[in-house]
C-alpha cells in the first residue's frame, strides 16, 4: 500500500515538474532570455508520465520537437535541460542542440528530434538492437498525430511488427499537426486503427488520465518485453499553448481551449488523489514547493553557467579514429 502511494505521488510530482518547467520556460522565452524556439508540452503531461512510469532506467525513448515532458518523465536533470535551453556549455548538448535536441544517453533518452516522425525509424532500430543483444530493454517511441502521416511511420511499424521488435509506438494525438486540424490532414479519427494493417494491437487511451495511460501502456511495454512485438498506442490529448510560442492560433477557438482545460490532467489526478485519501493536501503542497525550488535552482544554474567557447562549434562532429 505504501509502495502504491509513493508510486502515485511520484506520478503527480513528475507531472507537476513538467508543468512548472514548461511554464517557466515559456516565461523566460517571452522575456527573451532563451534563444531559439520553444514548443510547450503543457496539457499533455499525463502521456509522458503515464508511459515512462512503466519503463526502467535503461529502457529507451525517442522524443519529438515537443520533447521536454518526455525527458523530464524519463528522469532528465532539470539543470542541464534548462542550461541547454539557454545555450550554455553545461547544457545536455553543450549548447549545440537546444530545446529540440535534448538527449541523455545515460538514461536512454535518445534525443528529441526536429524532424516530425524522424525518431520513429530510430526507435525501431534501438528495439532491433535490444532483440539482437537480448538485453531485455524496451523502446518507447513518442510522436504526434502529424507524424503518423510520414512514410517512415509506415515503414517502421511494418518492419517492427514483421520482426516482432520490443517497441511501443505512442502517438500523442493532440488534434493538430502543427496548425492543421486532424480532419484536414487524415481521413480517420483514430490513429490506432492503423495498427490493424500492421497486424499489431492498437489501443486508444484518454491521454489526460495518467492512470489510464499507465495501465494501458504498461501492458504494451510488458508485451514488448516478453518478445510478443510492438503495439500502437494512441493517447488523445491536447496542448494548451500554440504549436510554437508565438503561434497566432488561427486554427482553433478560445472556447475549445477552455473546454479542454476542464479536463486538465493535473487537476484531474490531484482530485483523484485527494478524494481517495491517497495523499493529503499538505503533502501535495510540500511536493509542489520542492519542485518550485528545483526549478528555481535550474534557472539559476543555467543563468550562471558560461556560454560555450565559440570554437567548440567545430567539436563533436566525428568520433576521432586512428585512421
Amino acid at each position: 500500500m505504501e509502495n502504491k502511494r509513493n508510486f502515485l505521488a511520484g506520478l503527480y510530482a513528475s507531472m507537476y515538474k513538467i508543468r512548472r518547467f514548461e511554464q517557466e520556460a515559456v516565461k523566460l522565452f517571452h522575456n527573451k532570455e532563451l534563444p531559439g524556439w520553444l514548443h510547450s508540452y503543457i496539457g499533455e503531461e499525463a502521456v509522458a508520465v503515464g508511459v515512462c512510469a512503466s519503463l526502467n532506467r535503461d529502457d529507451y525513448i525517442t522524443s519529438t520537437h515537443r520533447g521536454h515532458g518526455h525527458c523530464i518523465a524519463k528522469g532528465a536533470d532539470l539543470k542541464r535541460m534548462m542550461a541547454e535551453l539557454y545555450g550554455k556549455e553545461t547544457g545536455y548538448c553543450k549548447g549545440k542542440g537546444g530545446s529540440m535536441h535534448i538527449a541523455d544517453f545515460s538514461i536512454g533518452i535518445l534525443g528529441a528530434n526536429g524532424i516530425v516522425g524522424g525518431g520513429i525509424p530510430i526507435a525501431t532500430g534501438t528495439a532491433l538492437a535490444s532483440q539482437y543483444l537480448e538485453d531485455g530493454r524496451v523502446t518507447v517511441c513518442f510522436f504526434g498525430d502529424g507524424a503518423s502521416n510520414q512514410g517512415g511511420f509506415h515503414e517502421s511499424l511494418n518492419l517492427a511488427s514483421l520482426w516482432k521488435l520490443p517497441v511501443v509506438y505512442v502517438c500523442e494525438n493532440n488534434l493538430y499537426a502543427e496548425t492543421t486540424p486532424q480532419a484536414d490532414h487524415q481521413p480517420i479519427r483514430d490513429i490506432a486503427d492503423r495498427a490493424k494493417s500492421y497486424n499489431m494491437p492498437g489501443v486508444i487511451i484518454d491521454g489526460n488520465d495518467v492512470l489510464a495511460v499507465y495501465e494501458e501502456t504498461n501492458k504494451a511495454v510488458e508485451r514488448a518485453r516478453a518478445g510478443r512485438g510492438p503495439t500502437l498506442v494512441e493517447c488523445k490529448t491536447y496542448r494548451y499553448r500554440g504549436h510554437w510560442e508565438g503561434d497566432p492560433e488561427v486554427y482553433r477557438t478560445k472556447e475549445e481551449v477552455k473546454e479542454w482545460k476542464k479536463r486538465d490532467p493535473l487537476k484531474k489526478f490531484k482530485k483523484y488523489l485527494l478524494e481517495n485519501d491517497i495523499i493529503q493536501s499538505k503533502e501535495i503542497s510540500f511536493v509542489e514547493k520542492k519542485i518550485e525550488d528545483e526549478i528555481k535552482d535550474a534557472v539559476k544554474y543555467a543563468q550562471a553557467s558560461p556560454p560555450p567557447r565559440p570554437e567548440s562549434a567545430l567539436e563533436d562532429l566525428y568520433v576521432e579514429q586512428g585512421g
Partner: peptide, 22 residues
C-alpha cells in the same frame, strides 16, 4: 528487409546508437 529505405537506414542508425555495427 522490406523495400523500405527509410526503415532500413533509420533502424540501422538506431541499432548503431545502441551499440551494434550495422
Amino acid at each position: 528487409t522490406p523495400i523500405s529505405e527509410v526503415a532500413i537506414v533509420g533502424a540501422a542508425t538506431g541499432a548503431a546508437m545502441a551499440g551494434l555495427r550495422p
